[in-house]
């Protein structure tokens, strides 16, 4: 049954109540704004918990953090005597997202996500249905391109136009017109292409997606038998192509885990589904062990009890 677009989320509200239907969205916004707030605490309140920008920062004056794509760009542009802090920072960030899902950066940390989500919301409200056609895989072309341009020009060329770092810098350093990058992304997503920037073009997202392609933390559709094809999850999902392989493969015996590296673990599908199809979990553990469960810990439950032992061994091996 197809929900009329103006009734999007109504079923979930009825079944779960307001907080239940927006829980992950609220947590995500808190995380995004919180991270931005931490960066702003320094310049505005003199409290330097984290210093720098999303490109590269220093947490508590000790822990270096480096955007892995930026690290690779520096290498591509032909500078090899990179400081160890940068290398360690890139390793820490890559390891973190390798475990919890690369594109968690996109949905839980990146400030552009708020803009892209707002554009999607406005699209829905204004009834804009047309969208340019571009494959989601275009992002890998753009990713390759950023590295090629770096290599050819010998500078971090992509950083001249990267809306993520432009916007973040402009917010943190409180200056000028860098925020126009956000306006550009908003207008592009609103008028030109649905999920345009984050879902099709952003090379940072593409790279994080590759880093987390085999990540541990995943959205699982263990309760997929309860899916009534209302299509609301497709409507809210920033990468809708990742859903069917998990949800629609019950008959063919496919894995209920959303394994596509481009799933951002944003958990909007968990919120919006009135039938509790989705839950956070781990990539291991099969559908057989999973009890239909609406607490959001299905995966954990499936992984820890004795029947899951073969998977544990596989993990160790």
């Amino acid at each position: 049954m197809r929900t009329p677009i103006e009734h999007l989320g109504r079923d979930a509200l009825e079944v779960k109540g307001w907080f239940g239907a927006y829980k992950w969205l609220i947590l995500r916004r808190a995380s995004q704004i919180g991270i931005l707030g931490l960066f702003l605490l320094g310049p505005f309140a003199g409290l330097w918990l984290i210093k720098g920008t999303l490109a590269q920062s220093l947490l508590l004056d000790v822990v270096p953090l480096t955007d892995p794509l930026l690290f690779v760009q520096i290498l591509a542009s032909g500078f090899f005597e990179i400081g160890t802090t940068t290398v360690i920072g890139a390793a820490i960030v890559a390891a973190f997202y390798f475990l919890i899902g690369g594109r968690v950066f996109c949905s839980w940390a990146c400030p552009v996500n708020i803009v892209a989500d707002t554009a999607l919301w406005a699209r829905r409200r204004l009834g804009i249905r047309q969208s340019a056609r571009l494959k989601p895989s275009t992002r890998y072309w753009v990713l390759g391109l950023t590295l090629i341009v770096s290599a050819v020009t010998g500078t971090l060329a992509y950083e001249l136009v990267n809306p993520v770092s432009l916007a973040h810098r402009s917010l943190i350093f409180g200056f000028g017109i860098g925020w126009l990058a956000l306006a550009a992304v908003f207008l592009f997503d609103l008028l030109v292409m649905r999920h345009g920037w984050c879902g099709h073009l952003c090379p940072m997202g593409a790279f994080y997606g590759l880093i987390g392609a085999r990540s541990l933390v995943r959205i699982r559709a263990d309760n997929r038998a309860a899916c009534d094809d209302c299509m609301e999850c497709y409507e809210v999902c920033p990468e809708p192509q990742v859903i069917p392989p998990a949800v629609k493969s019950l008959a063919s015996g496919g894995s209920p885990v959303i394994l596509d590296g481009n799933c951002t673990n944003c958990a909007r599908c968990i919120d919006i589904c009135p039938n509790h199809v989705f839950a956070f979990g781990l990539r291991f553990g099969s559908q057989a062990e999973a009890e239909p469960n609406d607490t959001g810990h299905t995966g954990m439950a499936a992984w820890s009890p004795p029947p899951a032992r073969p998977e544990q061994e596989r993990l160790i091996a």
């Binding site: 320094g42 210093k51 920008t53 590269q56 920062s57 220093l58 930026l70 542009s77 971090l156």
Partner: peptide, 16 residues
């Protein structure tokens, strides 16, 4: 300058 533009990550830590 050539090397600088390849190596600087535009993080702003020097400014801080």
């Amino acid at each position: 300058e050539d090397d600088f533009l390849a190596a600087c990550s535009r993080c702003g830590l020097c400014i801080r």
